[in-house]
Nucleic acid binder design. Structure first.
Lengths: 205, 205
DNA sequence: GCGTGTGAAACAATTCACAGCG
DNA sequence: CGCTGTGAATTGTTTCACACGC
């Protein structure tokens, strides 16, 4: 019931719950029990109830959870119910894919500016954004209210770019570069590392 | 010392260790202590020693760990020291980025075939691969010895494509589709979900 | 002395089991 | 009765602290 001291692992599960709630809503369902949802996702019903209980009481005794209501509550907890402005650093093949990734736009995470360290790319288009030089980063972040940076540069440019993002005032970075970033306290990094994912897969084969 | 019953969370840290070992090797270092490595990565020295102890004894008392030796041992544990053959399903912008992603090739994970459900794309090139139709999947997987599938299709096509991969005999899937896949026991799925990562970031902001 | 490897202790997460409510 | 919400019990993970070897 209290929202203090929520384990990080619980927060990482909330987006998963949202995904499955949306799927059920699309199928025209209205209500689900923790048992039903657990079967669907592959976790225990107790875990779902416990996870939700960190944030409040969202279910109805004897009935289950209202899908639309629970989804809206979870999105609110994640602050995913308001619009976010993202800056993309790195206009390579990956940057291209990210700019065109529909999931982001459809879920209120909007890439509003693109940058590249390579001055040859500056001025050309990526999606409907004009690629800017890193010199413009701080001004653009301030002007457009950018809250989150996406790093999609080669690993040898990543730390410098991260430093630039931090200097511009950004407090959250989604890092696609295959390297651990060092950032000051108060800045949060989420790391996506496909090679690491493949290596954990091949371990089990 | 025994290799039985290794917690999954330990396995997910091994690629991280490998990354930092490689970084140190590039810088010309030869040896590091668990304390030095812990400072670098941001974990406790005890955790590193405990993690490694699940697999054997790799350090030297009073000295630390030989970087090249430890890296080779970790790569061997992860089975990342031999070549793997991957099949890409989905030749959109993301598939494009994945085919050109150097990390994979440089680390022995080779995309050797590409497929798409859209017959209009079949026959055209992606990188230096010719896009094939899903009908060819089983034969190509068998012919080329594909062990891992990469799913980079829209969510409404993902479960069907996953079923096709499973039917072709594949036992590991790297899933970029924003949806939970249901697969039989014995098939392992690693899920990369950038939106979920953004949502955990915005939670903390 | 320095730093590993490892049981034991401390801490964290998950699951159990049941009171309580609609 | 069905199903939530939650303390208590269990299980899993991390950290401690020290014996041992270089």
């Amino acid at each position: 019931m209290a929202m203090t001291d929520v384990p990080e692992v619980v927060i990482r599960r909330l987006p998963l719950y949202v995904r499955h709630l949306e799927h059920l809503i699309e199928q025209g369902e209205r209500v689900i029990s923790s048992a039903g949802m657990g079967r669907l996702i592959g976790v225990t019903p107790a875990q779902i109830r416990k996870d939700l209980s960190y944030f409040g009481e969202f279910g109805r005794q004897g009935l289950g959870y209202d899908l639309v209501y629970l989804r809206s509550q979870l999105l609110h907890i994640l602050q995913a119910d308001k619009q976010w402005h993202l800056a993309l650093i790195g206009a390579g093949a990956l940057g291209h894919a990210l700019v065109h990734y529909r999931e982001f736009r459809e879920h209120l995470y909007h890439i509003v500016a693109a940058f590249d360290v390579d001055s040859a790319k500056v001025g050309s288009q990526i999606g409907d954004l004009t690629i800017q030089g890193m010199d413009d980063l701080a001004d653009t972040v301030a002007d457009l209210g950018v809250e989150i940076g996406i790093l999609a540069v080669p690993s040898d440019a990543a730390q410098q770019a991260a430093d630039d993002l931090v200097a511009s005032g950004i407090k959250a970075i989604l890092n696609y570069a295959p390297i651990g970033l060092s950032v000051p306290d108060g800045v949060r990094v989420a790391h996506i590392d496909p090679l690491a994912s493949l290596q954990t897969l091949s371990y089990h084969l």
